[in-house]
Amino acid sequence: MKGNTRVSNAEPEWESFSHALAAASALNRSLVPLRQDREATVRVLGEALKTFETRDEALLLLAALGTDITEALIPPLLRTALRVRDTLRVRQVLGRLPHSAAEAAVPPAVWKLLDEAAESDDYRRMAELLDYLGLDAALSDLCVRARESMDEEIREVAEDFGGE
């Protein structure tokens, strides 16, 4: 009798796993046309990142698609990373980039973002991202820039990430 109880308890777990596998399989099949029409995929995902209702799904798709699409979406991804709720997921998506690609594309997008009247939290999120990606030269540059700020809280970011 106890054996049957275990089996019936395990069935819901297997059923959930089975549903998840089916969903993963369906996702994998649905990615084929997205990979084939890269330009449209970049455009649609860029728009999806702007909207609260579609942002989670866009980040999920980006994690499953090739890094070439991620590279094309670095500016909107950085804006998304400014939202504390999405910071970690954006780091994980950008962390899939080859280091050389991240080194070439992320810092210029960070500088452009910070030129748009950034606040101390924006500096902090970007410093955390650069640190996470191992972009030490860019992090050092961000700290130099932060030290020169008139805003005390932005200068604090430099102290936290760049010493002194």
Rank of each mutant, 00 (worst) to 15 (best):
L60T: 05
E47H: 11
N28Q: 15
I69L: 12
D37Y: 14
V42D: 02
G66C: 04
R55Q: 06
L62I: 04
L62M: 11
R55L: 00
T51D: 00
V44D: 06
A26F: 12
L31I: 07
A22D: 15
L31K: 14
R29Y: 10
D37L: 09
A48F: 08
Q36M: 10
L34I: 02
L49Y: 03
L62R: 07
L21C: 14
K50G: 06
A58K: 08
L45M: 12
L62Y: 07
L21V: 13
A26S: 15
S30T: 10
L27V: 08
L27E: 13
E57H: 11
S25M: 10
L31E: 11
R29V: 06
A24H: 13
S30Q: 14
N28P: 00
R38H: 13
A63L: 10
L65M: 09
A24T: 07
E47Q: 14
T51L: 01
T51W: 01
A26L: 13
A40S: 10
K50S: 07
P33H: 13
A26H: 14
N28D: 14
A26V: 13
A40H: 12
E53N: 04
P33E: 05
T51N: 01
L21F: 15
R35D: 07
L60E: 05
A63G: 15
A64F: 08
L61N: 03
L34M: 14
S25P: 00
A23E: 15
N28V: 08
A40C: 03
G66E: 09
N28I: 10
L65E: 01
D37I: 08
E47I: 06
N28M: 13
A48Q: 13
Q36L: 10
G46K: 11
S25T: 12
A48E: 10
S30G: 08
L61V: 02
R43Q: 15
L59E: 00
A26Y: 10
G46I: 06
E39F: 07
R43D: 09
D56R: 12
L59V: 00
A24R: 14
A23I: 03
V32L: 11
N28Y: 14
K50V: 01
R55F: 01
A24S: 12
A58W: 08
D68K: 13
E53K: 06
T41H: 11
L34N: 05
V42F: 09
L60W: 08
R55T: 02
V32Q: 15
A24L: 13
L49W: 03
T41V: 02
D68E: 13
L61H: 04
E53I: 00
N28C: 11
V42A: 07
L27W: 12
K50P: 01
K50C: 05
R35T: 06
F52D: 07
A58C: 05
I69S: 04
R55V: 00
Q36P: 04
R29G: 04
E57K: 09
A26I: 10
L59F: 04
E57Y: 09
T67W: 03
E53C: 00
A48H: 09
